[in-house]
Protein backbone atom coordinates (compact mmCIF):
# COMPACT_ATOMS: atom_id res chain seq x y z
CA UNK A 1 0.00 0.00 0.00
CA UNK A 2 2.78 2.39 0.98
CA UNK A 3 4.77 1.30 -2.07
CA UNK A 4 1.81 1.90 -4.37
CA UNK A 5 1.36 5.36 -2.88
CA UNK A 6 5.05 6.09 -3.28
CA UNK A 7 4.73 5.27 -6.96
CA UNK A 8 1.50 7.16 -7.55
CA UNK A 9 2.00 10.33 -5.51
CA UNK A 10 4.86 11.76 -7.61
CA UNK A 11 2.92 11.08 -10.80
CA UNK A 12 -0.25 12.66 -9.39
CA UNK A 13 1.71 15.70 -8.21
CA UNK A 14 3.24 16.09 -11.67
CA UNK A 15 -0.16 15.87 -13.34
CA UNK A 16 -1.95 18.22 -10.98
CA UNK A 17 0.84 20.80 -10.96
CA UNK A 18 0.94 20.81 -14.74
CA UNK A 19 -2.76 21.61 -14.69
CA UNK A 20 -2.31 24.72 -12.59
CA UNK A 21 -1.26 28.17 -13.57
CA UNK A 22 2.51 28.71 -13.33
CA UNK A 23 2.07 31.00 -10.31
CA UNK A 24 0.36 28.27 -8.29
CA UNK A 25 3.13 25.75 -8.87
CA UNK A 26 4.95 26.77 -5.71
CA UNK A 27 1.86 26.41 -3.55
CA UNK A 28 2.36 24.75 -0.23
CA UNK A 29 0.60 22.58 0.72
CA UNK A 30 1.14 21.09 -2.71
CA UNK A 31 -1.70 19.74 -4.77
CA UNK A 32 -1.88 16.04 -5.40
CA UNK A 33 -5.36 15.84 -6.86
CA UNK A 34 -5.77 17.42 -10.29
CA UNK A 35 -8.86 19.47 -9.41
CA UNK A 36 -7.93 22.66 -11.18
CA UNK A 37 -8.00 22.67 -14.92
CA UNK A 38 -5.79 25.48 -16.03
CA UNK A 39 -4.24 24.87 -19.41
CA UNK A 40 -1.89 27.88 -19.34
CA UNK A 41 1.12 25.66 -18.83
CA UNK A 42 0.15 23.50 -21.80
CA UNK A 43 -0.23 26.56 -23.99
CA UNK A 44 3.08 27.93 -22.72
CA UNK A 45 4.99 24.75 -23.48
CA UNK A 46 4.10 25.20 -27.14
CA UNK A 47 5.28 28.80 -27.01
CA UNK A 48 8.51 28.31 -25.07
CA UNK A 49 9.81 25.35 -27.02
CA UNK A 50 8.89 23.78 -30.30
CA UNK A 51 7.27 20.81 -28.61
CA UNK A 52 5.42 19.86 -31.77
CA UNK A 53 8.81 19.34 -33.38
CA UNK A 54 10.03 17.29 -30.43
CA UNK A 55 6.96 15.06 -30.53
CA UNK A 56 7.25 14.57 -34.29
CA UNK A 57 10.98 13.78 -34.02
CA UNK A 58 10.41 11.27 -31.24
CA UNK A 59 7.50 9.71 -33.08
CA UNK A 60 9.42 9.41 -36.34
CA UNK A 61 12.56 8.00 -34.74
CA UNK A 62 10.65 5.55 -32.58
CA UNK A 63 8.30 4.38 -35.32
CA UNK A 64 11.07 3.76 -37.83
CA UNK A 65 13.24 1.94 -35.31
CA UNK A 66 10.29 -0.21 -34.22
CA UNK A 67 9.29 -1.04 -37.80
CA UNK A 68 12.88 -1.74 -38.80
CA UNK A 69 13.46 -3.97 -35.79
CA UNK A 70 10.24 -5.91 -36.33
CA UNK A 71 11.07 -6.71 -39.93
CA UNK A 72 14.81 -7.43 -39.63
CA UNK A 73 14.37 -9.42 -36.41
CA UNK A 74 11.62 -11.50 -38.02
CA UNK A 75 13.82 -12.21 -41.03
CA UNK A 76 16.90 -13.18 -39.04
CA UNK A 77 14.88 -14.98 -36.37
CA UNK A 78 13.20 -17.11 -39.02
CA UNK A 79 16.51 -18.20 -40.49
CA UNK A 80 17.95 -19.03 -37.06
CA UNK A 81 14.83 -20.98 -36.12
CA UNK A 82 14.38 -22.95 -39.31
CA UNK A 83 17.53 -23.15 -41.35
CA UNK A 84 20.68 -25.08 -40.63
CA UNK A 85 23.83 -24.15 -42.45
CA UNK A 86 27.52 -24.30 -41.71
CA UNK A 87 28.28 -21.92 -38.86
CA UNK A 88 24.66 -21.14 -38.04
CA UNK A 89 25.04 -21.92 -34.34
CA UNK A 90 28.22 -19.89 -34.10
CA UNK A 91 26.57 -16.97 -35.86
CA UNK A 92 23.60 -17.08 -33.51
CA UNK A 93 25.90 -17.22 -30.48
CA UNK A 94 27.69 -14.15 -31.84
CA UNK A 95 24.39 -12.31 -32.18
CA UNK A 96 23.49 -13.18 -28.59
CA UNK A 97 26.91 -12.10 -27.36
CA UNK A 98 26.35 -8.57 -28.67
CA UNK A 99 23.53 -8.24 -26.13
CA UNK A 100 26.13 -8.04 -23.37
CA UNK A 101 27.83 -5.00 -24.88
CA UNK A 102 26.66 -1.81 -23.18
CA UNK A 103 25.84 1.10 -25.49
CA UNK A 104 28.36 3.31 -23.69
CA UNK A 105 31.26 1.15 -24.85
CA UNK A 106 30.40 1.50 -28.51
CA UNK A 107 29.19 5.10 -28.46
CA UNK A 108 32.54 6.78 -29.24
CA UNK A 109 33.25 4.73 -32.41
CA UNK A 110 29.56 4.89 -33.39
CA UNK A 111 29.75 8.67 -33.09
CA UNK A 112 32.75 8.65 -35.41
CA UNK A 113 31.12 6.29 -37.89
CA UNK A 114 28.09 8.54 -38.00
CA UNK A 115 30.33 11.54 -38.60
CA UNK A 116 32.16 9.67 -41.33
CA UNK A 117 28.84 8.87 -43.00
CA UNK A 118 27.93 12.53 -42.89
CA UNK A 119 24.96 11.82 -40.66
CA UNK A 120 25.98 13.80 -37.55
CA UNK A 121 23.13 15.69 -36.01
CA UNK A 122 20.40 14.03 -38.04
CA UNK A 123 17.54 11.81 -37.03
CA UNK A 124 18.97 9.04 -39.21
CA UNK A 125 21.95 8.92 -36.84
CA UNK A 126 19.54 7.81 -34.13
CA UNK A 127 17.58 5.42 -36.31
CA UNK A 128 20.04 3.39 -38.37
CA UNK A 129 22.33 2.06 -35.61
CA UNK A 130 19.33 1.05 -33.50
CA UNK A 131 17.69 -1.23 -36.05
CA UNK A 132 19.80 -4.40 -35.77
CA UNK A 133 18.51 -6.03 -32.59
CA UNK A 134 20.01 -9.05 -30.87
CA UNK A 135 17.22 -9.37 -28.34
CA UNK A 136 14.54 -8.99 -31.00
CA UNK A 137 16.21 -11.65 -33.15
CA UNK A 138 16.31 -13.94 -30.13
CA UNK A 139 12.62 -13.35 -29.39
CA UNK A 140 11.58 -13.94 -32.99
CA UNK A 141 13.64 -17.12 -33.18
CA UNK A 142 11.84 -18.43 -30.09
CA UNK A 143 8.55 -17.44 -31.67
CA UNK A 144 9.17 -19.18 -34.98
CA UNK A 145 10.34 -22.30 -33.17
CA UNK A 146 6.97 -22.44 -31.42
CA UNK A 147 5.08 -22.39 -34.74
CA UNK A 148 4.23 -25.74 -36.36
CA UNK A 149 6.38 -26.77 -39.33
CA UNK A 150 3.50 -28.39 -41.25
CA UNK A 151 2.77 -25.20 -43.17
CA UNK A 152 6.26 -25.11 -44.60
CA UNK A 153 5.97 -28.74 -45.69
CA UNK A 154 2.55 -28.21 -47.25
CA UNK A 155 3.73 -25.06 -49.02
CA UNK A 156 6.73 -26.86 -50.38
CA UNK A 157 4.59 -29.66 -51.75
CA UNK A 158 2.48 -26.99 -53.41
CA UNK A 159 5.64 -25.73 -55.05
CA UNK A 160 6.16 -22.58 -53.02
CA UNK A 161 9.78 -21.52 -52.69
CA UNK A 162 11.39 -20.32 -49.45
CA UNK A 163 10.44 -16.70 -50.18
CA UNK A 164 6.75 -17.43 -50.61
CA UNK A 165 6.75 -19.71 -47.59
CA UNK A 166 8.29 -17.00 -45.43
CA UNK A 167 6.51 -13.90 -46.66
CA UNK A 168 3.01 -15.21 -47.20
CA UNK A 169 2.79 -17.88 -44.50
CA UNK A 170 5.18 -17.44 -41.62
CA UNK A 171 5.59 -13.66 -41.51
CA UNK A 172 1.83 -13.04 -41.05
CA UNK A 173 1.69 -15.82 -38.45
CA UNK A 174 4.45 -14.18 -36.47
CA UNK A 175 2.51 -10.94 -35.91
CA UNK A 176 2.14 -11.45 -32.12
CA UNK A 177 5.88 -11.99 -31.76
CA UNK A 178 6.57 -8.93 -33.86
CA UNK A 179 4.19 -6.94 -31.69
CA UNK A 180 6.33 -7.77 -28.65
CA UNK A 181 9.50 -6.67 -30.47
CA UNK A 182 7.78 -3.49 -31.66
CA UNK A 183 6.43 -2.52 -28.25
CA UNK A 184 9.77 -3.16 -26.57
CA UNK A 185 11.50 -1.01 -29.17
CA UNK A 186 8.90 1.70 -28.74
CA UNK A 187 9.22 1.72 -24.97
CA UNK A 188 12.99 1.82 -25.06
CA UNK A 189 13.54 4.39 -27.78
CA UNK A 190 10.69 6.75 -26.92
CA UNK A 191 12.32 7.18 -23.51
CA UNK A 192 15.91 7.03 -24.63
CA UNK A 193 18.18 9.86 -23.49
CA UNK A 194 21.85 8.92 -23.80
CA UNK A 195 22.16 8.35 -27.55
CA UNK A 196 20.18 11.45 -28.59
CA UNK A 197 22.29 13.50 -26.17
CA UNK A 198 25.46 12.32 -27.90
CA UNK A 199 24.32 12.10 -31.50
CA UNK A 200 22.27 15.28 -31.95
CA UNK A 201 23.30 18.88 -31.36
CA UNK A 202 20.69 21.24 -32.69
CA UNK A 203 17.34 21.65 -31.02
CA UNK A 204 15.49 20.93 -34.22
CA UNK A 205 16.79 17.35 -34.05
CA UNK A 206 16.15 16.79 -30.34
CA UNK A 207 13.81 14.07 -29.19
CA UNK A 208 11.35 14.63 -26.35
CA UNK A 209 13.40 13.57 -23.30
CA UNK A 210 16.35 15.63 -24.48
CA UNK A 211 14.19 18.64 -25.33
CA UNK A 212 12.51 18.55 -21.92
CA UNK A 213 15.79 18.33 -20.03
CA UNK A 214 17.12 21.32 -21.93
CA UNK A 215 13.83 23.15 -21.29
CA UNK A 216 14.29 22.58 -17.57
CA UNK A 217 17.81 23.94 -17.92
CA UNK A 218 16.64 27.10 -19.74
CA UNK A 219 13.80 27.92 -17.44
CA UNK A 220 15.42 27.27 -14.10
CA UNK A 221 12.78 26.98 -11.42
CA UNK A 222 10.61 29.78 -12.79
CA UNK A 223 7.92 27.83 -14.55
CA UNK A 224 7.68 24.39 -13.10
CA UNK A 225 4.22 23.79 -14.45
CA UNK A 226 5.37 24.46 -18.03
CA UNK A 227 8.12 21.84 -17.78
CA UNK A 228 5.73 19.43 -16.09
CA UNK A 229 3.17 19.96 -18.84
CA UNK A 230 5.87 18.88 -21.28
CA UNK A 231 6.64 15.86 -19.13
CA UNK A 232 2.96 14.88 -19.10
CA UNK A 233 2.72 15.27 -22.88
CA UNK A 234 5.73 13.00 -23.28
CA UNK A 235 4.07 10.39 -21.06
CA UNK A 236 0.89 10.08 -23.11
CA UNK A 237 2.18 7.48 -25.61
CA UNK A 238 3.80 5.56 -22.78
CA UNK A 239 0.44 5.56 -21.04
CA UNK A 240 -1.23 4.20 -24.17
CA UNK A 241 1.33 1.38 -24.30
CA UNK A 242 0.79 0.77 -20.61
CA UNK A 243 -2.98 0.50 -21.00
CA UNK A 244 -3.16 -1.52 -24.19
CA UNK A 245 0.17 -3.26 -24.61
CA UNK A 246 1.07 -4.10 -21.03
CA UNK A 247 0.79 -7.81 -21.59
CA UNK A 248 3.12 -7.76 -24.61
CA UNK A 249 5.56 -5.52 -22.81
CA UNK A 250 5.57 -7.74 -19.73
CA UNK A 251 6.10 -10.80 -21.88
CA UNK A 252 8.92 -9.15 -23.77
CA UNK A 253 10.67 -7.77 -20.71
CA UNK A 254 10.63 -11.08 -18.90
CA UNK A 255 11.34 -13.20 -21.98
CA UNK A 256 15.07 -13.05 -21.43
CA UNK A 257 14.51 -13.93 -17.81
CA UNK A 258 12.97 -17.35 -18.50
CA UNK A 259 14.89 -20.55 -17.82
Amino acid sequence: MVAAAAVLVPVMWTLSTSLRSPSEAFDLPPHFIPLGFDLTAYREVFVQIDITRLVLNSALVTALIAAGQMLTAAMAGYVFARMRFRGSNLLFALVLATMMVPVQVTIVPVFMLIRGMGLSDTLLALIIPAIPTAFGTFLMRQYFMSLPTDFAEAAEIDGAGPWRTFFSIYLPLSAPGMAIVGILAFNYHWNEFFRPLVLTNSEENFTLPLGLVSLQGHLGTGSISVVLAGVIISMIPALVVFLFGQRYLREGLTAGAGK
Binding site: A73, M75, T98, P132
Partner: peptide, 17 residues
Protein backbone atom coordinates in the same frame (compact mmCIF):
# COMPACT_ATOMS: atom_id res chain seq x y z
CA UNK B 1 17.29 -12.53 -44.65
CA UNK B 2 20.28 -12.39 -42.33
CA UNK B 3 21.99 -9.48 -44.05
CA UNK B 4 20.30 -6.48 -42.40
CA UNK B 5 20.85 -7.82 -38.90
CA UNK B 6 24.34 -9.19 -39.37
CA UNK B 7 25.72 -6.34 -41.44
CA UNK B 8 24.15 -3.82 -39.07
CA UNK B 9 25.66 -5.51 -36.03
CA UNK B 10 29.00 -5.80 -37.75
CA UNK B 11 29.07 -2.08 -38.44
CA UNK B 12 27.43 -0.70 -35.31
CA UNK B 13 28.47 -3.16 -32.58
CA UNK B 14 31.42 -5.35 -33.52
CA UNK B 15 33.43 -2.76 -35.44
CA UNK B 16 32.95 -0.20 -32.62
CA UNK B 17 34.17 -2.67 -29.99
Amino acid sequence: LLAPTLVGMGIFTILPI
